[in-house]
Design a protein around this nucleic acid. Structure first.
Lengths: 236, 236
DNA sequence: AATCACTTAATGTCTATACATAAAAATCAT
DNA sequence: ATGATTTTTATGTATAGACATTAAGTGATT
């Protein structure tokens, strides 16, 4: 008598060992429940997890097939810069450069869903690790969505951390890009002429209402993002 | 009588609407099963999915709590360049630049787990969209892990696509970086002096044995990667 | 050959119930 | 008080059985 985890791992092993190849049909839940001496519900759970993990595809009546691996889905965790810096054992320093309420440029206005002539909060800040600038945070915050932000100085707490604690971010969109540093970025991040920067743009919103639009700029020479997917580690 | 999906969505709504805030304890499965008029198994499934999605944390006896959002986990799909180009409606062209068996540099040798003096397959190729170079693919392939690769010319099929179809890749590691283009990359990708490039490094292996080590180089001006996480769309 | 309706097989979901397991909370002995 | 032990409780997993849903397959009909 086997648990759903054992069954799931056995099936996974048969797939990664190519005993069952991409496109192959797996035995039905019925058949497997007989093989493993358990009920169909147990096999169902095992196969559902394999399906969640993207190893197989299931369709009623058609059965369960090994997926043809095509792309490389990966989960990345966009770091919170303070944690990132402290994890490296460096001293973290935060500096607010600018804080003002102003009319955002047209594209930002559209993304935040603001009225014509509606002001938003503009914040520019720098994050240092061991005294070296690691991230420039340039952002617009929708004050209709987060009115409390108007009373916050952001002198001590970075806007990212503050917002995470004060507003739910159900919807997030990220764009990653390699850019050439602008003159201002070059100066603030203490970069050489023409050095590349790794840019993360983030847009968050809740039920159609934009919360924030950020541009996180990192020196290309001091930043990288990584992912790791191990089939052996998909499940705990 | 409600389905587990309805229950899951109701609970999710209570979380994102902040009716239940981060750190709050949810009612027990028992209590919820009474509220919704179903069995505990149904509530269990609903809450398990919320937990899988990272909205709540569950611990035996301690109960289920709303997670304190801290980082920004996101799932990205590293595109297969041909699909990416064809999706944009551009004409795809593939060009093999180099193919030879040689001794890899020390760091690659270590990553692939090769013997001293063991040769590996070196491939350099370019991918075009509408005649403009979009990706430079420089890679080492472990011939012990993929002996069939020795007989493949790679004249027509890109190494990425070929490998995906011929070898399982249970373990994948990616690194994303913004770099300054080398002289060769500048020439091959038809870049301006000092233009930034978006680099993806990928390492794949199976049961300790390295399969391939790739460096995918993209013109910063013609490439970006994006993610989108919508709480409303976590479940289908 | 294309289209329709019917059958059927596989997954999807639910109920009712039971026992397992982890860990918080309470109790007891020192 | 403090440490060890027991109790309790919420989640974790499993069973047996039922009905729902989807879509592949089949065969009859145009």
């Amino acid at each position: 008598m086997r648990s759903y985890k054992e069954i799931r791992d056995i099936l996974q092993e048969r797939i990664t060992s190519q005993q069952w190849q991409p496109g192959d049909l797996l035995p039905s839940e019925q058949a497997l429940s007989e093989e493993f001496g358990c009920t169909r519900a147990t096999v169902n759970r095992a196969m559902r997890e394999l399906s969640d993990a993207g190893l197989v595809e299931r369709r009623r009546k058609a059965g369960t097939r090994v997926v043809q691996p095509s792309s490389h889905p990966a989960t990345i965790t966009i770091p919170i810069i303070r944690q990132e810096i402290e994890n490296k054992g460096q001293t973290y320093k935060y500096l607010l450069l600018e804080r003002l309420e102003a009319l955002p440029p047209e594209d930002v206005r559209a993304q935040l869903g603001l009225q014509q002539n509606e002001k938003a909060l503009f914040l520019k800040s720098l994050h240092y690790g061991d005294g070296i600038p690691q991230q420039l945070d340039v952002r617009w915050v929708n004050l209709s969505a987060v009115p409390e932000a108007a009373d916050e100085s952001f002198a001590d707490t970075g806007p990212n951390e503050w917002l995470l604690q004060h507003v739910p971010h159900p919807n997030i969109e990220h764009v990653f890009r390699a850019d050439k540093a602008t003159t201002e970025e070059q100066r603030l991040l203490q970069l050489q002429e023409g050095e590349p920067v790794f840019v993360i743009e983030r847009r968050t919103w809740i039920s159609g209402q934009g919360i924030t639009y950020v541009r996180l700029v990192h020196p290309g020479s001091r930043f990288q993002m990584a992912t790791r997917t191990s089939a052996e580690l998909i499940f705990n």
